[in-house]
Design a protein around this nucleic acid. Structure first.
Length: 494
RNA sequence: GGGCCGUUAGCUCAAUUGGCAGAGCAGUGGACUCUUAAUCCAUUGGUUGAAGGUUCGAUUCCUUCACGGCCCA
């Protein structure tokens, strides 16, 4: 912060602070409140003034001064705390000498405390008739204009504290984010899942195809990678005997920013032994349905003008079928043969590499022509083995895996599969990934020998899944950008 | 990375063909003992994102850059 954003408004407040300093410590921390606005409204909002005056209730409240309406010898003020707002009614002659005069010099934005009794004004607004008020923290910077609030997107992201002070919608979004995460924890804990934490700094970044951030450990003199996924560690825990585990934490991927991508994002990953991908689709469906019901009070939710129904069974369709469904001009023969599939991809102006096999080409066609059109909640299944190096092959068709991704509103929200627990197949898949990496694929996986060693001890048949928390929160809060659901989204320096 | 749009007072926004940079809120001073964006009177406040160019004169036109938004890859 430079001196350049100092201005006369700040200077005036600084000078007020100086005056406060001369009168004593202007940052006291000896006030203890015994009520918050939301509880007062909940408890006394229904009562009329006669009832309130008949048995006076004394309260101590504190918060940010958000509005000040002075009318001669009486004034109203709005106090905002974590639970909402409560009005204060101040009368010069009901306050200690000089206090009212001091109050008139306080600014919107100051943190103040008040003690008094609850009553209702003539217009019926629940208020505190203040008998004492105190300044707890002087605010030096003016808040945005009271009516329009803070509208500038950039400032809302860069100075989230101002956004949170000014915008109730923003406060609601992040409260909902907390409730969603809490709901997931309760849901999984109830089913005997164990919450665990696995390394965020990894010697071998694994569990996804993505470019990692690198860092350096001085004492060990070695490169480390911020994890792109916790997957391989969580499955080591399944080998170890924790048959139901989950982790909710940050992943880091060194790629571009968009309304759907932030370099660090939050992922739920969970693994369950003696289950397959069908079980997880069922679980996902139930989880989202009950989450919507409990947190939104409805199994239908609105996102950016469209309605999505989580109440009815989610559609399930294979990658191959979905391509044919959304491309009626294509026949099975067009996408089952690599040369023909290449021709189709060329026609769609999809850039292909020579190394791409049929599975990769199919996925490119899928992403280009299908993904964005999967509006209603849909599970897409049977992903090609070529693009699913950690997933179990389908027993009847080894070209594909027992894997699904979940889409709603054209966006991928989850990815799950029956886990590959054949260590020899896994080793072979890693070798293929290393070949791709050597051929220049920056996102291809490393060979993780310790993970193979773990599998060689035997991992029970298992299914696992990842759910993108940020995108889920976007959906549940009708937020158009991932930045709206990240308290401090990544921004270029000012 | 490409295209389009934006950046003006602390905030929200105006500014005619290129001709004195404005309003509301906030602030400051005053009036006012039930307000709700309180009201009324008066009033302060600007490196128009940055640098350069064209011009007698640039918020306005041109170039480059920075940051952001939306769309595309």
């Amino acid at each position: 912060m430079t001196d350049q954003d100092e201005n006369t408004l700040i200077a005036q407040r600084r000078s007020k602070l100086t005056t406060l300093r001369e009168a004593g410590n202007p940052f006291p921390n000896d006030f203890r409140r015994n009520a918050v606005a939301g509880e007062l409204h909940a408890e006394y909002g229904d009562k009329d003034n006669e009832a309130l005056e008949a048995s006076p209730v004394r309260v101590k409240v504190a918060g940010r001064l958000m509005a000040k309406r002075v009318m001669g010898k009486a004034a109203f003020a709005q106090l905002q705390d974590m639970s909402g707002r409560i009005q204060l009614f101040l009368q010069r002659d009901s306050l200690p000498d000089g206090v009212y005069q001091a109050f008139k010099g306080w600014d919107v934005g100051d943190i103040i405390a008040a003690e008094g009794t609850i009553f209702k004004t003539r217009t019926g607004e629940l208020s505190v008739r203040a008998e004492t008020i105190r300044m707890l923290t002087k605010s030096l910077r003016p808040l945005p204009e009271k009516f329009h609030g803070l509208a500038d997107q950039e400032t809302r992201y860069r100075q989230r504290y101002v956004d949170l002070i000014m915008n109730e919608a923003s406060r609601t979004t992040f409260r909902m984010r907390g409730r969603i995460v809490q709901f997931i924890r309760e849901y999984l804990n109830k089913q005997d899942y164990l919450e665990v934490e696995t390394p965020m700094m990894q010697a071998i970044p694994g569990g996804a195809t993505a470019r990692p951030f690198t860092t350096f450990h001085n004492a060990l003199e070695m490169d480390l990678f911020l994890r792109i996924a916790p997957e391989l560690y969580l499955k080591r825990l399944v080998v170890g005997g924790y048959e139901k585990v989950y982790e909710i934490n940050r992943n880091f991927r060194n790629e571009g920013l968009s309304t759907r991508h932030n370099p660090e994002f939050t992922m739920l990953e969970f693994y369950q032994a003696y289950a397959d991908y069908h079980d997880l689709m069922d679980l996902t469906e139930d989880l989202l349905r009950s989450m919507a019901q409990q947190l939104l009070g409805d199994t239908t939710l609105e996102y950016q003008g469209s309605r999505y129904d989580f109440g009815k069974p989610f559609r399930r369709m294979s990658v191959r079928d979905s391509i044919l469904h959304f491309n009626p001009d294509l026949s099975a023969a067009d996408i089952d043969d690599i040369e023909k599939a290449r021709t189709v991809a060329d026609g769609l102006k999809i850039p292909l590499k020579d190394s791409y096999g049929l599975g990769k080409i199919q996925i490119e066609i899928f992403e280009k022509t299908v993904e964005g059109r999967l509006d209603d909640p849909t599970f897409i299944t049977a992903y090609p083995t070529e693009v699913s190096p950690l997933a179990r092959r389908n027993d009847n068709d080894p070209f594909v895996t027992d894997r699904f991704e979940f889409f709603v509103g054209g966006r991928e929200l989850a990815n799950g599969f029956s886990e590959l627990n054949d260590s020899e197949d896994q080793a072979e898949r890693f070798r293929q990934q290393v070949e791709d990496k050597d051929a220049g694929d920056l996102e291809a996986m490393h060979f993780d020998a310790d993970y193979i060693r773990a599998l060689e001890h035997g991992m029970p048949p298992t299914a696992g899944e990842g759910i993108g928390i940020d995108r889920l929160v976007m959906l549940f809060t009708d937020s158009p950008s991932i930045r709206d659901v990240l308290l401090f989204p990544h921004m270029r320096p000012e």
